[in-house]
């Protein structure tokens, strides 16, 4: 008989993730199981609850599959948060590979009752403003900036801005009214909320440096649901998860970037490219976040220093591999 997996996620069906990641994945497991297993999609939180509750829902078996951001639940996944520190990750693909290895090595205990099928990060995040350009560090003074995660909230504070917390759905409106002066986001999400139409300036850090910030994602399955599957269906899931899937999803995020960026270029928005020296200044101004993260982990009796080093080494390794290929 047919196995139906309830797949709950945050995006409306037309968004990039359901179109390029979730839909294809579901088609693939249906095909490879000879239609003995299929997804029942619950887009845009139509299964009830809030985005931060998704991690508990998949753990408790309310939902069978979810894609969500661990960063929605501040303080819950302190280890995986390492990839949200500033100036860590250079591309989504490299970040995805490193975060999968890091998860395997250090963070499995952060997800009890949950089978993690993939982990990744989004493409590099940048600074976008509506009326005041950010040419240098000092320009952040007095700017109200929307931050998507706990770490970016701290980051913006260190850079001198006033962070404002709000859901991404409110950004366009807040921007048009001047409730905020700008926001940090990766290019990928910008078209979905037409934010390029609300922004005039885009400040991009030096490409030789790692990204200003990224946020992590997880693709998770309820463990009990997985355990209840017959061996051959388990195998279908196994074949469609892990390092390979993570890397592939990271790549999808990277690939969506030029198209989204082009929309802003075509509108004639102003692009500000920071020099390596100026980017250095930003990195220095926010460097203490790494120490804060280490201290945070040590307070929980975890070896924060080693883990940070491990994450950085993994990122360096995959960056090296990526460069070698080119």
């Amino acid at each position: 008989q047919e196995v139906v997996l309830k797949f709950h996620h945050i995006w409306p069906t037309a968004a990039m993730a359901p179109q390029k990641v979730i839909g294809p994945w579901c088609d693939k497991i249906a095909a490879e199981s000879n239609n003995r297993m299929r997804c029942q999609l619950l887009p845009a939180m139509s299964g009830g609850g809030t985005p931060p509750q998704l991690v508990d829902r998949v753990k408790d078996g309310v939902d069978d599959l979810v894609v969500t951001l661990p960063g929605y639940t501040a303080g819950r996944f302190p280890k995986m948060e390492v990839f949200e520190l500033p100036f860590m990750v250079s591309s989504a693909e490299q970040g995805a590979q490193a975060s999968w290895d890091f998860y395997q090595k250090h963070a499995k205990d952060e997800f009890p009752g949950t089978k993690i099928l993939a982990t990744w990060v989004h493409d590099p995040g940048f600074v976008h403003t509506s009326s005041k350009p950010v040419n240098k560090l000092e320009d952040f003074r007095g700017l109200k900036m929307r931050a998507p995660t706990r770490q970016t909230n701290k980051l913006l504070g260190k850079l001198g801005a006033t962070p404002v917390g709000m859901p991404v759905t409110g950004v366009a409106d807040a921007l048009s009214k001047g409730t905020i002066d700008g926001y940090v986001l990766p290019w990928e999400v910008i078209p979905a909320f037409k934010l390029h139409e609300m922004s005039k300036y885009h400040t991009e850090t030096d490409p030789g440096h790692p990204a200003l910030y990224t946020a992590g994602f997880i693709f998770a399955m309820n463990q009990a649901k997985y355990d209840s599957l017959p061996a051959d269906l388990k195998k279908v899931i196994d074949n469609n998860s892990g390092a390979q899937l993570s890397r592939q999803i990271g790549k999808v995020w990277d690939e969506s970037r030029p198209m989204a960026r082009k929309l802003a270029v075509d509108r004639g928005n102003n692009f500000i490219q920071l020099s390596p020296a100026e980017t250095d200044r930003w990195q220095k101004a926010s460097a203490s976040l790494n120490e804060e993260w280490v201290k945070d982990l040590e307070r929980r009796n975890l070896p924060g220093k080693e883990m940070l080093k491990d994450a950085q080494d993994l990122l360096a390794k995959y960056k090296g591999e990526g460069n070698a290929k080119k």
């Binding site: 931060p52 508990d56 639940t73 501040a74 303080g75 819950r76 302190p78 931050a147 995660t149 706990r150 909230n153 962070p163 917390g165």
Partner: peptide, 19 residues
Amino acid sequence: GAVSVMEAYESTMILGLPM
């Protein structure tokens, strides 16, 4: 639910208040 999110150390994004 309160016990669940307490045991998971969830907090709010900006103020870090216990969820």
